[in-house]
Simulated assay, not measured.
Amino acid sequence: MDIRPIAYDHPDAVKLNDQVQLEYAERYGESDMTPLDPAMFTPPRGLYLIAYDNEGFPVATGGWRAQQAGEENYADGDAELKRMYVVPAARGRALARRILALLEADARAAGRTRMVLETGTEQPEAIALYLSAGYTQVPQANRFGLYRTTDESRCFTKPLTRQLPTTPIPAPRKPLP
C-alpha cells in the first residue's frame, strides 16, 4: 500500500468521501452534515491521507484538522480525526490502523496535544479500532462536535504525548584525563 498526503478536494478524496457518506446514510439514515473545508486539512493545521492499492486505486482515507476551545466542546490543542474510511474490498488489512498512526504522529509533530473523534453506535468496527488504539470514550456531558447531543453519538479522546526515542541512548563518554 502507498499512503500519501492528498488535498481534501482531490478527485480521489471526493470519490472516497462520497462513498463514506453513502455508508453513513445507510447506517444512520442521513449523511454527515459536519461542515468541512479543504483548507482545514492543509498542513500544519491538518492533514488528509489516502491509501492506494498496488494497482493505484484509492482504498482508504483519513484526516485530522485542528480545533480550539469553543461552542462545540473542543479544547485548545485538539486534533480532530475525520473521514476515516476503508472501502469494503480492502477491509481487514489494518489500513485504518496504519492511517490512524500516521495521523496521530503528524498531529503530534504539529504541536497538537489531544486527538479527538466522534463516531456513532452504528459503527462498532470503528469503536473497536479506537478502543484498541488507546482511545477513551468521554462521558455524555463532555461530548464534542456537531452530533454531541444525539443518542447515537460516541466521542473518544487520546493524549498525543511525545513518543520516547526507539533508538538506545548512547552511554556517557569517559571523562578526559
Rank of each mutant, 00 (worst) to 15 (best):
D37F: 07
V87T: 11
A51H: 01
G63S: 12
T121S: 11
T119N: 01
K82G: 01
P175L: 15
L36P: 06
G56M: 04
Y130T: 07
F156I: 06
D106T: 09
A79K: 08
G46A: 02
D76H: 15
Q140R: 13
A105L: 07
Q21C: 05
R148W: 05
E55N: 07
V59A: 10
P139K: 14
S132C: 02
P159F: 05
G77R: 09
R93P: 02
N54L: 10
G29A: 04
R27W: 01
T119G: 01
A13P: 06
T166K: 09
F144T: 09
L16P: 02
A7E: 03
G29V: 03
P88Q: 03
S132M: 04
L160Y: 06
Q68V: 08
R91H: 10
D18N: 08
D106F: 07
A141G: 13
D151V: 08
F57Q: 15
G77N: 11
L146F: 13
A96R: 03
R45S: 11
G145C: 05
P170E: 08
R162G: 06
T136I: 14
T61V: 06
L160Q: 03
L81D: 10
A133K: 05
N54C: 10
E80R: 11
P43L: 11
T166W: 03
T161I: 00
E122Q: 15
Q19M: 11
P58A: 08
Q21H: 00
V86P: 02
P43V: 08
M115L: 15
A171I: 05
T166G: 07
L176Y: 05
L129V: 13
P5E: 12
D9H: 14
V87S: 06
Q67G: 14
T161Y: 01
T42M: 00
W64L: 13
A126C: 07
P168R: 06
V138S: 08
F144I: 06
G111L: 09
R93E: 07
I169E: 15
T161Q: 04
E122D: 14
P35F: 00
P35N: 02
T113L: 12
C155F: 03
P38S: 04
A60N: 04
E55C: 04
A60E: 02
M1N: 12
A94Q: 12
Q67R: 15
L95M: 05
N73W: 12
R114E: 08
L102Q: 12
L103T: 10
Y135C: 11
F144R: 09
T121P: 03
L100G: 03
T149L: 03
L49R: 02
P175Q: 14
C155D: 03
R143M: 14
L95C: 08
E80M: 14
E125L: 09
E125Y: 07
D2Q: 15
G77W: 01
V87Q: 05
R148D: 07
E55W: 09
